[in-house]
C-alpha cells in the first residue's frame, strides 16, 4: 500500500525534544522528535478532550498533551494519565499514527503502512522553510525557469542548484528549500519570490 508522501519541514527545524504542527492532505498533525531522536507524526488531537498535541511537550520518549498531561509513547499509545497516577491507561486510548521519515534533511509524512518512495535530493543542503500566502499557480509564476518534478521544483540561482519541495495547503503553499549555494543568498531570494507570488494573488 502506498499513500502520498508530503514534505512537512526541515530536520534542522525540529531538534530533539521538540513538537511542531504539520499536515497531511486535510489532516492536521503533530510532528515531534523524542529525546533519542525518534520522529513521530500523529493526528493533532488528544483523544481525551480534542486539544492540539502540537501544543504539548516532549519528555524523553513521550509526547504529553498540554491540557491534562496525558502522555503518549512513540507508538501513539497513552502511557500515563496524571489525574490517575496508579492506573494503566486502556489500550484504546491511542493517537492516530502516521508514518514519518526524514531524508536529506527533509521530514516526510504519509499514512501508516505506505511504501517509502521519496524524491532524490542528494547533494543539496537544507536552507529554510517559508509559507507563501498564495496558491500553487501563483508560486509557479514566481519561479520562471524552474522545472517541476512531482512535489519538487528544481532550478538555479547564480549558478548554484536550488530545489524547492512544495507542500500544497490549498490557500497557502509551504516551501522547503534546499540548495548548493550560499544559504543567505537563497534565503533572501525566497523572500523576494514570496512577495512576487503574493502580488500575483492581488493582481
Amino acid at each position: 500500500m502506498s499513500g502520498m508522501w508530503v514534505a512537512n519541514g526541515l530536520s534542522q527545524d525540529l531538534p530533539l525534544g521538540v513538537v511542531m504542527a504539520g499536515a497531511w492532505q486535510g489532516a492536521e498533525l503533530a510532528i515531534w522528535r523524542s529525546a533519542s531522536g525518534r520522529l513521530s507524526a500523529w493526528n493533532d488531537r488528544c483523544p481525551h478532550r480534542g486539544m492540539r498535541l502540537s501544543h504539548g511537550f516532549v519528555r524523553g520518549e513521550t509526547l504529553s498533551c498540554i491540557y491534562h498531561g496525558w502522555a503518549y509513547g512513540t507508538d501513539g499509545a497513552c502511557s500515563k494519565i496524571p489525574a490517575h497516577p496508579a492506573m494503566v491507561p486502556p489500550a484504546a486510548i491511542k493517537a492516530e499514527v502516521y508514518q514519518c521519515v526524514e531524508a536529506e534533511g527533509v521530514i516526510w509524512v504519509a499514512p501508516a503502512g505506505s511504501d517509502v518512495d521519496l524524491p532524490d535530493l542528494s547533494g543539496l543542503a537544507a536552507v529554510r522553510s517559508v509559507t507563501v500566502q498564495a496558491g500553487l499557480a501563483e508560486v509557479a509564476h514566481a519561479l520562471p525557469g524552474f522545472v517541476c518534478e512531482g512535489a519538487v521544483w528544481r532550478g538555479q540561482l547564480d549558478g548554484a542548484a536550488v530545489a524547492l519541495v512544495v507542500q500544497d495547503r490549498g490557500a497557502l503553499v509551504r516551501i522547503h528549500a534546499l540548495g548548493t549555494g550560499d544559504r543567505v543568498k537563497v534565503s533572501r531570494w525566497l523572500d523576494g519570490m514570496m512577495r512576487l507570488a503574493e502580488q500575483g494573488v492581488l493582481a
Partner: peptide, 8 residues
C-alpha cells in the same frame, strides 16, 4: 489558549 485549540 487551550479553549481556542480544541478540535472540534
Amino acid at each position: 489558549s487551550i479553549l481556542e485549540n480544541q478540535i472540534p
